[in-house]
Nucleic acid binder design. Sequence first.
DNA 1: GTGGTCTAGACCACG
DNA 2: GTGGTCTAGACCACC
Lengths: 127, 127, 127, 127
Amino acid sequence: MFITIDEKDRRPIYLQVVDEIKTLIARGELKEGTPLPPVRQVAANLGVNLNTIATAYRELQEEGLISIKHGTGAIVTSSRANNFSSEEDLRRPLRAALTQLVLVGLSSKEILDLVAEELKQLVKGGK
Amino acid sequence: MFITIDEKDRRPIYLQVVDEIKTLIARGELKEGTPLPPVRQVAANLGVNLNTIATAYRELQEEGLISIKHGTGAIVTSSRANNFSSEEDLRRPLRAALTQLVLVGLSSKEILDLVAEELKQLVKGGK
Amino acid sequence: MFITIDEKDRRPIYLQVVDEIKTLIARGELKEGTPLPPVRQVAANLGVNLNTIATAYRELQEEGLISIKHGTGAIVTSSRANNFSSEEDLRRPLRAALTQLVLVGLSSKEILDLVAEELKQLVKGGK
Amino acid sequence: MFITIDEKDRRPIYLQVVDEIKTLIARGELKEGTPLPPVRQVAANLGVNLNTIATAYRELQEEGLISIKHGTGAIVTSSRANNFSSEEDLRRPLRAALTQLVLVGLSSKEILDLVAEELKQLVKGGK
DNA sequence: GTGGTCTAGACCACG
DNA sequence: GTGGTCTAGACCACC
C-alpha cells in the first residue's frame, strides 16, 4: 500500500493520510475486508510518529470506512462513506479546486480533461 | 459582495473567505481594478474577528490576486493566480473532492454533470 | 447459555462477556454450582479468540462469582460479588448510564420505567 | 466547574472527563452557550496532560454537545446528545450498572432509591 | 491567549 | 503483536 506525504502541503499529515487511504478505497485498491497495515508499520514507512497514523485511522473509523479492533488491527469495512454531508458540503471543496484551476489559467477543456483523467483512475473498476 | 461562512466546515474561517473571494474573481464578479470592501466591514458583516479577514486578504495578496495599500484599501489586480504550485499541488485537492463524491456513492456521470455545472458558473464571463 | 457481543460497543469484548454472565447470574439463570461452558466452546460460538474468554472468566473469578479449576472447568460459586468497591464506584456507572438517558431526551418518568423494567428482569427469581 | 478523576477507575482519564462534563450538562450546571474552561486550565487543575483534555473535548464535540472554535475556545451548544444509538445501546450500560448493584447485594428497593436520588440530581431543573 | 498538531517514548490493554 | 492511552514538551494556526 503506497502512501506519500507532502512536506509542502499545509494540511496536517494525518489528514493527508486519511485522504490517500480514501482514494485507495475509492479506487478499489483497498477492498472491503482488506486489512490495513499496522499503525506502527505505516508510521515507520512514512517516518512519522505512531500517533499521527493512529489519528488518521481513528478518523477513517469515524467516517465508517474502516473498523479498528483492539489487538487485531484495522480492516476496510465499506467503500461507502457515511454521508451525513449536505450537497453543499460536497460542492464546496469541488468548487474550490475548480476555482484554483481556473485562476491558474487552465481552459474549461483542459480542466474537464483533468477531471476525466482523475475520475477514470478512481472508478477503474466500473460503475 | 456576498460571502458566507459555514460553521460546520472544519477549515479555518480565513481560508473559507479566501476561497469565496477567489471564486468571485474567477467568475468575473470581481474584475480587475474593483476595490474590495474594507476589512472592518467584511468582519462586521460576517460577525468574525477583524484579524481573520485581514489574514484572508494577506493570503490573496500573496497569490497575486489583490493589492493591499495602506490607507486606500485593497483592489483586485489580476484574475490570474501566481502559479507557484506544481501540477500535483493542483491535482491533489481535485482528487480529494472527487474521491469524496465517489465514496458518497455518486456515479461517474453524476460527478461529471456536477463538475460541468460548477465549471459553467465559474467561466460564465469568458474563456 | 446465551451470550452476544456487540460489534459497535466500544468496550472490550472480554468485558462485554463478563457483564453478560454477571447478568445471567443476577437473574438466577446461572445458579450456584452450575458449570460454565468450556472456554473453547464459548470462544467458538462467539467467533472470538480463546484468550478473550479466558480473560473474562479470570475477571469473574477475581470478583468471587465463579471458581476455575484446572481440568474440571469453571462453576458458579456465588451470586454475590466480593464488594471491594466503594459506594462511589457503584454510583459512577449508574450515573453515567442515567446521564446518557437524560441527554438523549428521555423524561424522568420514562427513565424510571426503563429502570423498573430492567430491574424486574434481574430479580425475577427472588428477593 | 468541578471535575475529578479517579485513579482507581480503570477507564481512561479522557473518558472520565467526558462523562463528568456530560453529567454537568445534563444537570444544567453547564447551559447552552456557556464557555468551557480552556484545555490547558483544566489539564493543569487535574494535573494531567493537555492532550488528554483535548481528546475529551474532541469527543464531546463529536457527540454534538460542544463546539470547539480555533482561537476562541469551546462552548456548550446543546443539552441534547445526537442520538444515533439504538435503544439496546442505551439499555446495555444501564443493565450492567443495575446488575452490579444486585450482585453486591442491594435490594430492589435500595436500588430504586439510589436511582431516584441520582436522577433527581440530574433533572433538578425540572422536566 | 485560544486550540491543533506532532514528536519520542513509555506503559498498558487486548486478542 | 495488535492498538490505546498518556506524558512532556515543542511549535504552529487561528482569532
